[in-house]
Write a protein that binds this DNA or RNA. Sequence first.
DNA 1: ACCAGTTATAGACACGCTGTCCAGGAAAGT
DNA 2: ACTTTCCTGGACAGCGTGTCTATAACTGGT
Lengths: 212, 212
Amino acid sequence: MATEDRRSRRTRSALRRALVDLVLERGYAAVTVEQVVERADVGRATFYTHFSDKQSLYDDLVAALLADLAARLEPGDTAGPGFTGRPVHALFEHAEAEEATYRMVLRGDGDGRALRSLTDALAGAALRVFEDRVADQGLAPRVDLRVLARAWVGEQLAVLTWWLAEAGRPLPRADVVGMLADLARHGRWWATGFGDDAPDAPAGTDSSAPLV
Amino acid sequence: MATEDRRSRRTRSALRRALVDLVLERGYAAVTVEQVVERADVGRATFYTHFSDKQSLYDDLVAALLADLAARLEPGDTAGPGFTGRPVHALFEHAEAEEATYRMVLRGDGDGRALRSLTDALAGAALRVFEDRVADQGLAPRVDLRVLARAWVGEQLAVLTWWLAEAGRPLPRADVVGMLADLARHGRWWATGFGDDAPDAPAGTDSSAPLV
DNA sequence: ACCAGTTATAGACACGCTGTCCAGGAAAGT
DNA sequence: ACTTTCCTGGACAGCGTGTCTATAACTGGT
């Protein structure tokens, strides 16, 4: 009387794992349903009793991942070993735990659908937090909060992608997360090694400040 | 005696435009070569004399875009109306000029290949600039420069994506670029409205600082 | 241990898109 | 005008898809 027949669970999870593996090997577009069922050791007809097509399996996978992430981002949640409750930490922890799937998503496989979902979810959450904080503490934002949310999330995901999928985790997770925190607190100018007094640009036209 | 036969040029550019249009309408995966040649009003056999497949046409398109962007990022270049020579400005200007193609790339169509190329190119350039600056001015970076470069580029592209492809350019370009500059100079803390004195986290364990 | 209900499977089918080839007709460049 | 280059429609085999069938295997509950 468990939620599902054991055979269904086995089949579905075998298909999910096979898809992730194959996508990481060949890229989403190059993967066929035939390859997936062969890798999962499942009959082709069986595939179609569970999913309508490749996209459907992919969406299912991503939805599960996002639901799992959302649960970890819940403020009250402190389950899991070493879970800190801080969003960026939670994201990086989750990514490390589900490395294969994250690699797939962050690479943009599936025409970027999954990556967009992830970005939207995080940016939406960030925007809500910013707005609440501004309201609660009566702050006067100096930058459009929508831009702020996107920038902050873009920063996280870009670093996460580099760290997890490209460079192969060359630094401890805590260090990378700490750098993101420092960056958020002090800005890039400070991080590069300049003094705390950031040079206010001759606001308006053409200072030829490099990279800005 | 121009570099190419006029017919070739016409055909190629028709195919390029057709691909971009169709991808924006239906997504890269859903576009077929047959649809492209029909939209471009070109024989199917003709397509294959120019490109080996859909991917090839796509790659050609992206390569041209990146080459164009690289030219605009050259320090010495001051061509074009209102071109400022500042990299972020140049990127946003280019994106506005080539809006359709940028939408396609930023959305991650084509399994993210193009977006990754763009990211890598910008991150590589940023890293080089950072390293040069640190060396020239004898700075002591407070954050790993590789992380810094990825974060900075991720920030730009995330904001660009939101501004160009999702929100439909709700703010003037100069404003958005200015916000990115402010953010780089002062950090998110300052941007949210807090004072200049960023609260240094009890560096190490678990301050429950939200969103960090 | 058994049984009814569910799930897995192989094989066959039509269909759509791919990538290649060819022989002609059309339009460039000089 | 004339040669070279490009475009074109049609035909081809090949592959992957999504659906359907009848049969076999397994499952949870009695």
